[in-house]
Write a protein that binds this DNA or RNA. Structure first.
Lengths: 217, 217
DNA sequence: GTGTATAATAAGGTATACCTAAATATAAAG
DNA sequence: CTTTATATTTAGGTATACCTTATTATACAC
């Protein structure tokens, strides 16, 4: 039986492995807000169940089976986010937290029917892909808004989904997936970016810009 | 913190207490599929948290707070059932089991928004009330279809929701809430009932009829 | 090559929520 | 009023998933 806890581990490993592969145990423990000792204990169990491969002092990697399970949970999470945001009208800064609960209470049947009802959405409200063979956190020709130079135009692909305050701020600025921005100015010494968005202009800090993934257009 | 397990206990006590009040510990353990010892342990914890009152050799009763919590879980359960059946199109014999998972993963916000989206439904697909101050299992002038006599007409209020096979059978017969039936014949020695349903006729066993709650019209 | 910082593990604990087996208490029937 | 069936409690265990503290192993930099 795959417990909620196991699902949480697999999901987190999957997401972290797009930045770091194999995933260091310390990074995993950090991300999950548990002690490295606890993470180590659980990883041993996941190894025994052949959901991950673990090389001490290197880190963990999902097996094919682990990857499958992880992607299933991630898919459910993102489907619920779409439902909560689009159908129930829950603000996008709150749907992540809610979906974290629902994702573990979802059968294959409900997942399937929900996806159909939502007309097989491509992404969650924050821009992350619902389906696929990757968690979609670090693919293709994407880069961070903070890496652009003046004059470059880009479309927002996705934004960091964990920080509700940040999401509320971005919603106010209309910096959501699909938005097209043009960088007008980049202040030196890690200073703010000035971007044009349609007819209006936004000045955002570098740290905020680094939470926004874009693709140049 | 109210765990899933606590929610399950409160919900079960609430439902059983419409047939039996206070609820015997053995009946509770039986219904939940756990040992009486485990039930006893948990009840002690619920007493300490002032969610139930326990009189040994009598049984348990919900406190006001316990009742509130129980009804909240039941409401979520029935809202999800409506959603799964009406919106996602999941067969009514499967929605109970699915809702048993989702009910524990639902915040007040999602409950609220879901109820609004569903336009504040009165009942779940099996006919049990979504809201109210009772779990709605044994109220008003209701009686069982098996108690009717020939010539009596009644409207189906609700049907037992735990047995998927039974629900599939009832769906085939179109014996769902709101259906109006007239008893034509009651065979002796606990024999079958013959009921008229619109233009057609159904012959059902006494045990099946006892799972259908009706109100005379 | 040898520190040293970092990573991993061992040892021992906690809380939740179950279990069985055995002992004891109570209600209700004869 | 005693017997007996049923209900309850005690005692001791299991599994999951965490924790802290202390020890040991490793990698990498100097």
């Amino acid at each position: 039986m795959v417990t909620e806890s196991v699902e949480q581990y697999l999901q987190t490993i999957c997401k972290l492995s797009s930045e770091q592969n194999p995933v260091a145990l310390s990074a995993l423990a950090d991300q999950m807000g548990i002690s490295p000792v606890s993470a180590n204990e659980m990883i041993k169990k996941l190894v025994a169940r052949e959901l991950v491969i673990y090389e001490p002092y290197k880190g963990v990697t999902l097996t094919a089976e682990g990857q499958t399970q992880a992607l299933r949970v991630i898919r459910r999470h993102r489907l619920w986010e779409r439902f909560l945001a689009d159908v129930l009208g829950i603000p996008w800064d709150q749907v992540h937290e809610e979906a974290c609960q629902l994702e573990h209470a979802t059968s294959p049947l409900v997942e399937e029917k929900l996806a159909q009802f939502l007309e097989e959405p491509e992404t969650c409200p924050h821009g992350y892909p619902v389906a696929g063979t990757e968690c979609g956190c670090g693919d293709e020709a994407s880069l961070l808004l903070s890496e652009l130079e003046p004059g470059q135009r880009a479309v927002v692909l996705r934004v960091a989904e964990h920080n509700a305050d940040l999401l509320r701020y971005l919603a106010e600025l209309e910096l959501k997936p699909q938005a097209v921005v043009e960088v007008e100015d980049v202040a030196p010494f890690d200073g703010p970016l000035t971007v044009r968005l349609g007819e209006s202009r936004r000045v955002i800090g570098r740290r905020v810009a680094s939470q926004i993934t874009v693709r140049m257009v």
